[in-house]
Design a protein around this nucleic acid. Structure first.
Lengths: 247, 247
DNA sequence: CGAATCTTTGAATCCTCTCAAGTCTTGTGG
DNA sequence: CCACAAGACTTGAGAGGATTCAAAGATTCG
């Protein structure tokens, strides 16, 4: 099983300037409708990074100067509770953005800690670029609003799927989410989250998560393959996720 | 105690054209930074309504042609779960908007059912107006983004405050929210929500809500005054809300 | 006034949390 | 390279909390 502790020895890797022109997922991102070729000079300052699982992308309270586009992997945005525990308020998947509040005003601060849940590739876009794009191409605001909207969807998913029902249902739904993401990325196996993260996502204690995960492994909902990946029984998990009370 | 069933005999009352110029809460809304006087012709189609508690404001799936500004009262946005139960995904308070997804594209549909939780005054703004405003005054996009951002805050509040911790904590925090809203409106007493709504807000069964509310009344956290209002012990509720484990 | 709906309450069950101990993993330093 | 320490995960037992089912009060609206 994988360890997602924040103390991983691997480091954030700088991968140089982003190559938006050849970006494989551009059509799913902020720049979907943009003539990237014409905009090239403006986009030059965009940098690309690779974050190992567990690495902090940005911290709550810091003045927000960048919006982060996830190209690959998965980020979590989380808040610290009064008792020091953490609660994930949304997941940011490939094509979506983190730190969108950087667009609000020039001294706005990030609302959350953003951390890679799985090894992630992220483009770091200075908010200035997005402001300029919006000035020059008002249509770009439509794109921005779609991204705000998607953030809302992500938050609603945390409420409706991951914070509602029994522990077994919540965990099953979270696993189905990971499965959907893996399949969208063309992978056959999933990378599980750590117990801590599952707990912060569902609002349930780590021990309870651990027990349900153990049950899922016992009943072959999840099967450990080599040490990198886990294969799964999707139909089985779906039964747990949406408790169809068969009469 | 109040009944918030959707079958109230009172009806939605049309109150004619909105008078933005003399709107008491304009400075908290979409039009905070606008020269309303100059814009008057454009704003003419804005209508004002009064919804009794329990009335549907708009329905999920309907083509979204209006954004709704809450001037007074409280709205809930809710989703239907697979088992037919409801889950509130955010509260919309005075100054904020509901149905903001109407801005996305001309045939977008509402994401939720929006219902008045407390008697509400609402202005109904055709999305066209907001589009035109944005075209003519690009600064207006900043305002729109602030409103998107506030929607996210409202969703995060549902996650972090109303869907985390014990039933007692969740209910206490929901009551503190109602208290804050009442005080912001200059009222000394609060209007409780129905058990159904508290349940949909917290993700807890109606029976459990009822038990905790009974406990709060027994311990004088809540005291029934006349039959319209309830007074409260804020400090006491805060202790329940943020379980300060006194060592 | 009466039917329908909502709310309250009880009792039993089941689930989840807490606390605690034990196991496994990982990274560090000798 | 191995041993160790720190942290993460697992598992158990018991207590406490939440849900379920059922029935009895309240309210509300026609």
């Amino acid at each position: 099983m994988q360890n997602h502790s924040e103390s991983k020895c691997l480091n954030v890797r700088w991968e140089g300037r982003a190559n938006c022109l050849q970006c494989a997922i551009r059509k799913q991102t902020l720049f979907a409708d943009l003539n990237v070729q014409a905009m090239e000079p403006l986009l030059r300052p965009i940098q690309q990074y690779r974050y190992p699982a567990g690495k902090l992308v940005y911290a709550e309270g810091v003045v927000a100067q960048h919006v982060f586009v996830v190209r690959k992997g998965l980020l979590k945005l989380e808040e610290t509770l009064h008792d020091g525990n953490l609660r994930i308020v949304r997941l940011v998947e490939p094509g979506q953005v983190a730190g969108i509040e950087a667009l609000l005003d020039h001294s706005h601060r990030y609302d959350h800690n953003a951390t890679a849940l799985q090894a992630a590739e992220v483009c770091e876009i200075p908010y200035v670029i997005l402001h300029r794009l919006a000035e020059q191409h008002p249509v770009f605001f439509e794109t921005l609003m779609e991204h705000w909207h998607h953030q809302l969807h992500a938050a609603e998913q945390v409420i409706v799927e991951f914070s509602t029902g029994t522990v077994r249902e919540r965990v099953a739904r979270a696993l189905l989410k990971l499965i959907a993401l893996a399949e969208a990325a063309g992978e056959q196996q999933i990378h599980l989250l750590g117990v801590r993260d599952m707990s912060a996502l569902t609002g349930v204690t780590r021990e309870s998560i651990s027990r349900v995960m153990a049950e899922f492994k016992r009943t072959n909902m999840l099967v450990k393959q080599d040490d990198t990946g886990i294969s799964y029984n999707r139909a089985g998990l779906q039964r747990f996720a949406w408790q169809e009370d068969i009469i």
